[in-house]
Design a protein around this nucleic acid. Structure first.
Lengths: 227, 227
DNA sequence: TAATAAACGATAGTAATACTCTTAATAATA
DNA sequence: TATTATTAAGAGTATTACTATCGTTTATTA
């Protein structure tokens, strides 16, 4: 079953790119090398010139696929959220108890790579670290409202919606289901960063193994039905 | 009592700046105008050139105070955390019940400006919005470990420590006090951003008035002592 | 298989950014 | 009044983030 995921096509809003990178070898290579380089250099030091050099091509070629590096970042993040949704769907499939299901979802979000997943051309581990270190920069901009309107964040929002529904199944009276859903996703990534760089500020170890326990406990205690 | 805060000197790690901006009118003016401009333009579009223009001076003058705009951002954020600590200390003073105290602390973090605070030369409202929109960028960098070692984030860490101690007073057995403390601070700012730009993803309104209720409920339910 | 269109590589060029350096003018202090 | 520190003004550099042009290659289709 998981074999299927290897080749699955993740849908990304087509206004993020100028030319679909999935439509050519070069395009896939751009994504592939972008993940490697952004992971290595950070988005600030990453440039299309460096990317072009790594690809043995020129800046102008890269610009034919993406308007700028911000959109390229949006693309790979959106791809990640799309991919993660598949992961969540697969891992919660056939689980009828909503509490069990939210546990599985939290697990998928906090440790998405535990299943030794391999993807055809995407380095999922590098991508996950980009999500941890760079994703807030994708929306903390002055252009966020515009980009949101165009639909650049739909893949992320779909995951939120899923969790919200799951929370409401467990306790339909809990008034902050949306806020709590956001908290789960954001905390999972954030605490991984803190675990790596500010170990004194957290009880999560650098491998992040306690993340699931922390979040499950937090969520379940918060939405349990006793007032 | 709050009058005292108007003139209080907030201590900021001296390696963040080249020349202490508190030491001259020009320095204070740099901070003052930086807050205005970063708030207005966002840190990406903010430049020392624009700042110098607003100050009626030149880039080289600004460079005598700060090595680069990243350090300037670190300065004003560090100043904010220093200031917020005073706020927390004042608002929890003489409150002996730790549960009451954490409530007050959460209130100070989620709505730091409710007391119509005025500061001598710092635009606290603008500053708070910078914290919301830009603070993750201050540590999500490749230089974070180095900067952390130098002590650029101590003001932030001190607030975390306070909350951790407060949590432990309420329940000394709760194993994730540090992680929860971080969660409170990070969520408070994050959810304000989402409330403004992704209203569909949260139950918090744009004024953020539900933030305190959400966080209090979350924290107290999580650390309550029944297993 | 030839014609035609699309994609790509190579090169040049521009405005802005993020600085550094030097020198002259002004203000503070001894 | 002399000395020192501080600031203003200007020039200069490497890099970034693009845009534009133009052949050449590759793919499509007639």
């Amino acid at each position: 079953m998981r074999e299927l995921l290897k080749n699955i096509q993740i849908r990304v809003n087509e206004r993020i790119y100028l030319k679909d990178p999935e439509s050519s070898d070069l395009g896939r290579s751009i994504i592939n090398h972008s993940i490697k380089l952004i992971h290595e250099l950070g988005i600030e030091s990453f440039t299309f010139k460096k990317l072009a050099f790594a690809l043995n091509t020129t800046e102008s070629t890269v610009y034919r696929y993406f308007e700028n590096k911000h959109n390229l970042l949006l693309y790979i993040l959106s791809w990640y959220w799309g991919w993660l949704e598949y992961e969540i769907v697969l891992s919660t499939m056939n689980i009828s108890d909503p509490t069990d299901r939210i546990q599985k979802t939290i697990e998928a979000i906090s440790d998405p790579l535990k299943n030794e997943l391999v993807h055809n051309y995407v380095d999922l581990k590098g991508l996950h670290e980009i999500v941890i270190a760079e994703s807030p920069k994708s929306f903390l901009t002055k252009e966020v409202d515009l980009e949101n309107e165009i639909g650049f964040f739909v893949n992320y929002k779909r995951i939120c919606d899923r969790i919200v529904k799951n929370i409401q199944e467990i306790n339909s009276e809990y008034p902050y289901s949306k806020t709590l859903a956001l908290t789960i996703i954001q905390c999972a990534n954030q605490h991984r960063f803190f675990a790596s760089h500010f170990p004194n500020l957290t009880n999560i170890s650098s491998e992040g193994k306690e993340l699931h326990a922390f979040l499950s406990d937090l969520v379940l205690k918060t939405i349990q039905n006793n007032k």
